[in-house]
């Protein structure tokens, strides 16, 4: 399945370095509209950085990030503000505002971007809470929520403006099986019901393969594979296979660079 037909986000020739380390080196990614796309790869390959680049929080050294017709890195403050209305992001830690209760957290983007009257805001917030199953928790403070509940509230906040794109930064990390199941279910259902585009950044193979329509695998600053879950299972690459099957040794070695083993041991005895 080729996504070129309708890509809501078109990333071309993206290059970004942090200090000396290249995070992305001429990367091309197309995010298909209305589908769930997963960005995967070993830890530290810059998956969260990609989301920040798409959201305009970071500027790439080179390359274009096209959202429909807008090139994100070139946008001014005003335009960036309007574009951000179309994006919702679920951060790894939930990132709820600790000085407001659940209701206010979800109402926040509505108050910032719209001038809707209070009754309408109330209705929208309650609808979003209902969608994530937490309508009864509206008056709780973030410190009173469990990890899983906090993530769901953060998800409700991310969709409160009905954005075209919802980005999930490592949503499955550190969740217990029930919370995980709830989240997976929610992501899929919301994607179908609300028709937005979902981008999931994760290194959780099992859950991600279950809900992704299209997958990109990043490693060493480049895309090493892309395709539907079925296509990737058949890919003929050591790197990909090691990642997909979770093999302990392969192109990403088990042993950290060290001198020869025998030399090391003998050296101890000799002195």
């Amino acid at each position: 399945m080729k996504p070129e037909s309708d890509a809501i986000i078109d990333i071309r020739g993206l290059s970004f370095s942090r200090g000396d380390r290249p995070i992305f080196d001429g990367v091309d990614i197309k995010i298909p509209r209305g589908k769930v796309t997963a960005i995967m790869g070993p830890s530290g390959t810059g998956k969260t950085t990609l989301l920040k680049l798409i959201g305009g929080q970071l500027r790439p050294d080179r390359g274009d990030i096209l959202l429909d017709d807008l090139n994100i890195p070139t946008l001014g403050r005003r335009e960036l503000f309007e574009v951000r209305e179309r994006m919702g992001m679920l951060f790894q830690s939930g990132a709820l505002f600790t000085d407001m209760d659940v209701f206010e957290n979800i109402a926040f983007p509505l108050r910032v971007h719209t001038t809707l009257p209070e009754e309408m805001i109330r209705d929208i917030v309650l609808m979003k809470l209902q969608a994530v199953g937490l309508r009864g928790a509206r008056a709780l403070m973030p410190s009173e929520l469990s990890g899983g509940m906090a993530r769901r509230v953060a998800l409700a906040r991310a969709i409160s403006l009905d954005p075209d794109i919802v980005m999930y930064d490592e949503p499955f990390t550190g969740q217990d099986p029930i919370a995980m199941g709830v989240l997976v279910n929610l992501i899929r259902r919301l994607n179908q019901a609300l028709g937005h585009t979902s981008i999931i950044v994760s290194h959780d193979i099992k859950e991600t393969l279950g809900i992704a329509d299209y997958i990109y695998i990043l490693s060493d600053a480049k895309v090493i594979a892309s395709g539907t879950p079925k296509e990737l299972a058949d890919v003929d690459s050591d790197k990909v296979r090691q990642f997909m099957q979770g093999l302990p040794d392969g192109p990403v070695p088990f042993h950290y660079k060290a001198p020869d083993y025998m030399q090391d041991l003998l050296g101890e005895i000799q002195s």
Binding site: Q57, R84, M89, V112
Partner: peptide, 16 residues
Amino acid sequence: LMKATEQLASLEMIGV
């Protein structure tokens, strides 16, 4: 702490 829990980043993403 707000920086560490990504609250500042999410404010930015919401456009504030």
